[in-house]
Amino acid sequence: MSMLALQGVGRDFGGLPAVDSLNMSAERGRITGLIGPNGAGKTTVVNMIAGLLKLSRGQVLLDGEDVSTREAQELSRMGIARTFQNIRLVRDASVRDNVLAGFHLHEKTSTLANLLGLPSAFRERRALLARTDELLDRFGMTAMADWPAGSLSYGHQRRIEMMRALATEPRLLLLDEPVAGMNDAEAYKLAAIFREVADDGVAILLIEHNMRFVRRLCDHVCVLASGRLIAEGDAESVINDPRVIESYLGS
């Protein structure tokens, strides 16, 4: 069974379908690419899966369970994590604190223990900080841990978004243009990390413009144009598909 399956999914804005009759899936352990020209509806798809937009039609299945009407917070508890295309961090907080915020779902101590400042709350904080530092190390950002997130470059801010999403230990990871604004060397370093995450059994849905990156990384690629799926398959065949070339370059 697919980790994520969309069945006949559609969403209208002001009566016009932004996404329509979309069927696609993402498998555990694989990186699925979702590509398409600007305005194709890619981010709309991510927002629907993450519960930030209601579906107009169709169903979203997570591991076989219909989650179409769930709220974003529930979906996050069920193992869906995402990054945002327009970076959304607590700009004045340090890199470390931003990543630490992602561990919320793994906090076990009670609200009361936190309000009273009981030792258990502090122990947990230390444990989560240790895990935060592991993530920082994995993304090569230990040296920047104390800097305010907003003072760093786009590339580094995107990495913070990814660390924060990974901190939730998701089953399904939605990456919305994770390497935009990075050079190839930086992007491929991240690609290695995505591959490791997928190898741990996580299903990754990757939205990307950078074709070289998609070609190199994705096991399976879906192409969206004007809200509809126009092609899917392995990266090579999709990229050479005449309909895909037409949608990107115009006829």
Binding site: L52, A72, Q73, R88, L89, V90, H104, N114, G117
Partner: peptide, 22 residues
């Protein structure tokens, strides 16, 4: 400093991010 303070900070800055982190 606690988990609640972290929740306050992220909710104040961006509620959408807060709910997507649970």
């Amino acid at each position: 400093l606690s988990a609640i303070g972290r929740g306050f900070d992220i909710i104040r800055e961006d509620e959408t991010v807060a709910v997507s982190l649970g």
